[in-house]
Design a protein around this nucleic acid. Structure first.
Lengths: 213, 213
DNA sequence: GTCTATATCTAGATAGAC
DNA sequence: GTCTATCTAGATATAGAC
């Protein structure tokens, strides 16, 4: 098998096991076994288990990056925001092991710690930019202090929704309905600060999706 | 040394190390070493490392229990609610290792998984009771669906604030100011649904604490 | 109750043949 | 590139002397 193929096989197998069983509960032997290769072969392709985690995180980052690049001056529609949130939750769901054991992973792997902090900061900036856009066209009325706290609350929700949902059911974000619930709760924090015309749009949108699921 | 004393020493040493370094990064030898006792002695008092974790969790539960018992019919003041939140955040801060590695611990220790789910449900019920009290005396205006989502957002914040705060600074809830920020953010989610008289109280209260810290 | 010494086990990682 | 065999380290846990 080509070098690249085996490497990809190891990565996809690892991702599946990490997501299903939790990264701490998956050994390199376990991965090799599941991928039907030898442990030695695994270590030919990766220097360590952490190396696999880091590579997976890099893939995640690459796909996540565009989602944090929010155009500065563009006022966005409710639908766009929903779609944006949908994409990020879906992606995070595909790499949910990262969010389930965040503290463990960041305390063990300094590179990941730095990168994750950077990611969170970009998400924060993106959130601020989005809110500012809504403010500029009069859709959102909020003072700076409230805005600051709102951003924290949003960030907290989009970071820890996955482990939170895990506590109550074993699903996480695998099926669509759980995602809808996550998005609705994030938007719900925004709605009280929206002004009538936009506000009604957001409420209607949320109602729509919630009744469908 | 009396049996009880050594047991307590092991527990307090474990709690300190778990909180500081993260439970997965602390071995039983590490604990014994730090407590200045032999590994054998540690295993005389506890059957396993998980046993230590479980005992710590029980202590946490015992102290947390009263905080989830909210009187049904009593309308509470803003100050009371602040104080209530202060107590729970402070206690969680003292046992923060539980909240930093929640998924890991619950996936490994079924007893803890069940107990933690139960705890979360009691917290949810307590939150609902509190909101209902505010509704009954007209201070809070919110429809059932909004209420449901608000409760989720509050629960998420009071469960994951600790690891969230950890990402940005290394403090967590050790010092008081971090706690004030946590409480303010929880109350901030509530404020938009409050009616003028009560609403003003909550805002003033939050301002007060935030400017002090 | 406490210690020292040691057993057991598993995960991560390497060496060398093919 | 891949395998088999093996090493190492460290963590959990036990045995038996004191």
């Amino acid at each position: 098998m080509a070098k690249r193929d085996t490497k990809e096989l190891i990565l996809s197998t690892s991702l599946g096991l990490f997501n299903d069983l939790g990264e701490p509960n998956v050994s390199t032997n376990h991965i090799a076994d599941e991928a039907d290769i030898s442990p030695g072969n695994l270590y030919y392709h990766f220097r360590s288990k952490d190396d696999i985690v880091i590579e997976l995180f890099k893939r995640f980052l690459t796909r996540f990056q565009p989602l944090t690049e929010v155009p500065e001056d563009q006022a966005l529609e409710a639908e766009d925001l929903w779609f944006q949130l949908h994409l990020t939750f879906e992606l995070k769901g595909q790499f949910r092991f990262l969010y389930r054991n965040l503290s463990d992973l960041t305390s063990r792997i300094p590179d990941l710690d730095r990168a994750m902090r950077g990611l969170l900061m970009r998400e924060r900036r993106a959130a601020i930019t989005l809110l500012s856009g809504l403010q500029r066209n009069g859709a959102l009325k909020i003072n700076p202090q409230e805005k600051d706290m709102l951003v924290d609350n949003i960030l907290l929700a989009i970071t820890y929704w996955i482990p939170y949902a895990d506590i109550f059911d074993r699903q996480g974000l695998e099926e669509g309905s759980a995602q809808v619930e996550a998005i609705a709760r994030v938007l719900q924090m925004l709605i009280p600060y929206l002004q009538p015309p936009t506000r009604t749009q957001f409420i209607a949108l949320t109602q729509n999706y919630l009744s469908e699921s």
